[in-house]
Design a protein around this nucleic acid. Structure first.
Length: 557
RNA sequence: UGCCCGGUCGUCUAAGGGUAGGACAGCGGUUUUUGGUACCGUAUGUGGGGGUUCGAAUCCUCCCCGGGCAACCA
């Protein structure tokens, strides 16, 4: 293909091609999509993909997207979830056109069912769920008709109205669409469209004791709203036939369903049921535990909406099953964070360094840039004194050739400060280094270095007298298996016991005490960090969003 | 083994009969007062067999592999 034709037809995903065609052929003049969460859990990054697809497509084609809660099963749903979902969608940066609930349509849906019944397209079945399951057949063998299938429309309507009136107990009767018990599609074998549940609904209170099923509610809700493209995940593929059947029999707006492959990420789970289990069984600290793939978890961990949107755009949309490498998510986080994070120095595992030729009691305020990627963030002042902390990792008694940090006789640059040379060190009886003695080179001050000394390594550090204690929470993947779907047995067996590593007392430069909520930081040579929701002036707590790429760790392996 | 989907670098995703490209991951460099960033370079792929065609990832066919479907969940 030539360059010019590539410009004429930039690569599009299959949904964009469908929309192009629909628009070109005049099927629709504009598009309307919807994001239809069930309010029975918190949104996770898989939902972010769906949100990105639905809202992204609408934005691209100058259409709009409705937020519609699929609240047809009051047993598991609640307003807590509704609120968190709305909050998460907004946080991601999307704005819906209208906010609807499937429960807004309960009256319409009831009338639709009446019409089906009157047309001989639905009937009330008194069978038990076991009996229904038995007559349903199997994927390889046809089902057979229920003994109640031939009731008259009059009898069916009477029974259905009495179901609504609360005359019958839960499970005693259901309404089924009369389609085809021999269909190769199991879902077409007279699917249940209404069931009796004498339960309180978070929006309609106790008005209803019968509730429509997903199959009876979703397509009709789409049609009522004039949704042009109803985009869902692959597992709903075989529901499409049912979806179309209702729209046809009820003569509604011809919404069309399209399916894409849901997001899977290595080393994580995306099942709401399993996520809920992690929460209820306290394997994690709530839905917003920073290790959770929930949007609230990612937010608490310090992921930005932008990085998540970028991730969703990079993974693409297609119909084949996929397992996205978690490193792509991390890449997207670093890419954004690198540009917006202010740098700070924090020593996680300190070892004391004494600058023997620095006068006792003398403090020099040095200047350090807040963000080398963004000069507009200016500089901050960092105090330097005779006694400082550096990372224990940054000193080695016997250093290999390629180690260019501190070791006896070697020199390093202290970031934004001076070059120091290691003259001596002390160890305790266990062989642990307790103190390192160095001399500094007065003419090597950062920015005005005339020493001519070449230091290969640069270390972060904090002045002991000025250091403030902070708690650091480092995270690793929540699971030890790359692809949980491939594993046999309980997914809980694959929980990574080392997914949380708390450093109770790390030492930070004083500038960090002025932490502003919502600020993202890069702790130099460590990673990106974000204040936890529990962080306070009295006790600063930071969550690791993602570590810096660590080439040295790789070499060292 | 009934029906429905799907199979392109390790992982995602393009190429719509005409040079298999991009990203992440990997590897190797350059720059660097973060072993970060940035930049440069590099290896790896069309599940298989038959066809159609001057030419096939693309069309046909058979096979293989993966996923979904038997909730009064969504």
């Amino acid at each position: 293909m030539s360059d010019s034709s590539a410009e004429e037809r930039p690569s599009k995903n299959f949904l964009e091609e469908i929309i192009d065609k629909d628009l070109a052929e005049g099927r629709h003049s504009s598009i309307l999509t919807r994001f239809p969460p069930e309010p029975n859990g918190y949104l996770h990054i898989g939902h972010a993909k769906s949100i990105s697809v639905n809202f992204g497509l609408a934005a691209k084609y100058n259409g709009a997207t409705n937020l519609r809660f699929d609240d047809t099963n009051p047993v598991t749903e609640s307003t807590e979830y509704v609120d968190s979902i709305k909050n998460d969608v907004k946080w991601l940066g999307y704005q819906w056109k209208d906010e609807f609930y499937a429960s807004d349509y309960f009256e319409n849906l009831f009338e639709f069912a009446i019409k089906l019944i009157r047309d001989g397209n639905a009937y009330v079945d008194d069978s038990t769920s076991e009996e229904i399951a038995k007559l349903k057949g199997t994927p390889t063998s046809a089902g057979s008709d229920s003994p109640y299938r031939s009731r008259t429309p009059e009898e069916n309507e009477d029974l259905f109205r009495r179901m609504r009136a609360g005359e019958f107990p839960d499970g005693s009767r259901i309404v089924r669409a009369k389609i085809d018990m021999t269909s190769p599609n199991m879902l077409m074998r007279d699917p249940v469209i209404y069931r009796i549940k004498h339960v309180h609904h978070h929006r309609t209170d106790d008005k209803w004791c019968i509730y429509p099923t997903y199959d009876f509610a979703h397509g009709q809700s789409d049609a009522i709203e004039n949704i042009t493209h109803s985009i869902c995940t692959l597992e709903f593929m075989s529901h499409r036939e049912v979806y179309n059947w209702f729209i046809e029999k009820l003569d509604l707006f011809p919404s069309q369903q399209y399916e894409f492959a849901r997001l899977n990420i290595s080393y994580t789970i995306m099942s709401k049921r399993k996520l809920l289990q992690l929460v209820t069984e306290n394997h994690v600290d709530g839905w917003d535990d920073p290790r959770m793939p929930t949007l609230s978890g990612l937010r608490r961990r310090g992921y930005t909406p932008k990085s998540i949107r970028e991730f969703c755009s990079r993974i693409g949309v297609a119909k084949r099953d996929n397992l996205i490498d978690v490193s792509l998510l991390e890449f997207c986080a670093r890419e954004d964070l690198n540009k917006i994070s202010e740098r700070r120095m924090v020593v996680f595992d300190p070892v004391k360094v004494v600058i023997t030729n620095w006068p006792e009691g003398q403090v020099e305020q040095l200047s350090s840039e807040n963000n080398p990627e963004d000069a507009s963030t200016g500089d901050r002042s960092v105090p330097f004194s005779r006694e400082i902390y550096i990372e224990r990792d940054d000193f080695m008694e016997d250093a290999p050739k390629k180690y260019f940090r501190l070791s006896p006789g070697k020199s390093v640059r202290l970031k934004s400060a001076y070059i120091i040379t290691c003259e001596d060190f002390k160890k305790d009886e266990n062989g642990t280094v307790t103190e390192i003695h160095c001399t500094y080179h007065p003419d090597s001050r950062s920015g005005s270095d005339t020493s001519g000394i070449k230091a290969k390594g640069t270390l972060h550090w904090v002045s002991i007298d000025h250091a403030i204690p902070v708690e650091i929470r480092d995270y690793d993947r929540l699971f030890t298996s790359e692809n949980l779907a491939d594993e046999e047995g309980d997914f809980l067996e694959y929980i990574n016991p080392d997914s949380l590593n708390v450093i109770q007392k790390a030492y930070a430069e004083p500038a960090l005490a002025e932490d502003v909520p919502g600020h993202h930081y890069q702790f130099m040579r460590k990673g990106y960090y974000y204040a936890d929701k529990t962080s306070s002036k009295d006790k600063l707590v930071f969550n690791q969003t993602v570590g810096l790429r660590d080439t040295w760790a790789k070499i060292n392996k």
